[in-house]
Design a protein around this nucleic acid. Structure first.
Lengths: 129, 129
DNA sequence: ATGGGGGTTCCAGTAACTGTAAGGTCAAGG
DNA sequence: CCTTGACCTTACAGTTACTGGAACCCCCAT
């Protein structure tokens, strides 16, 4: 399979697939003409990557996850720890966003949003000025 | 005031303040020795920037917000629209994170996390493989 | 042989800083 | 007067995970 076939099947852009090769996440064979030639194992790795990325794991986390996946002697504790760490990052990010959202939503509510210049949003940003 | 005084007072890293000058968000005077010299107006702009960034506005949004702040003939509608757009971005991001969180939390829960290699997290990422 | 739709590499750009290196300035102390 | 240390300056590289574009190669059908 060539790169665009794999792109269609995995839903990943061809550019991204080439990038993943460049950073060593996959290593497809090359045909005589220099084209990348993907087999089923490459497809599986890419599908795995796509799902891990969709869960928000960083590329480096993905690298570790794939190494654990490849390692038949892994302990599930290592996987769980990685996932839990990521879960905590997500929770922190969500809390941060929720905080922003609350403040912002309140400001948006109180702004009349007409042609006049008075604006509680700007007033709040400039508070103390 | 020199850059580190302003950094202390605004809570922004000195590096960030220099960066904001570089991209044209502020324009402090220079003393004879070449040092940046910040006045109250600069301080206010930086405090404004710090608060806008803390609400998650992009640098370009901040640029627009400061222009609106400077413009006494602005309409509050313009400010509100910008803020509302940002609020929607935050909501979308939060929904995305919540989705990730749910999936991930479920996987983490079902993983026993011991020395054995069986792991529903990896199994899910590899599903179909 | 030529046109179109693949493929390839390499380089630049994105967002918003952050780190580091090399060097100029200034006030205090010996 | 000289040094030391804490400032300040600029310029450049690195970060994350791609994405866009240019220049060029390959293959098949007409």
């Amino acid at each position: 399979m060539n790169v665009s076939d794999v792109a269609r099947r995995t839903g990943l852009p061809a550019k991204t697939i080439r990038y993943y090769e460049e950073i060593g996440l996959i290593a497809p064979h090359r045909a005589a003409n220099g084209y990348r030639s993907f087999d089923d194992a490459d497809m599986h790795r890419l599908a795995f990557l796509g799902r891990a990325r969709a869960l928000g794991f960083s590329i480096e986390d993905c690298r570790t996850l794939m190494a654990l996946w490849d390692d038949r002697d892994r302990s599930s504790a290592d996987v769980k720890q990685l996932a839990q760490g990521h879960l905590e990052r997500i929770d922190r990010k969500m809390a941060e966003l929720a905080q922003m959202r609350d403040t912002l939503a309140h400001l948006v509510e109180t702004c009349h949003g007409d042609e006049r210049p008075d604006c509680p949003i700007l007033a709040d940003l400039a508070r103390g000025a």
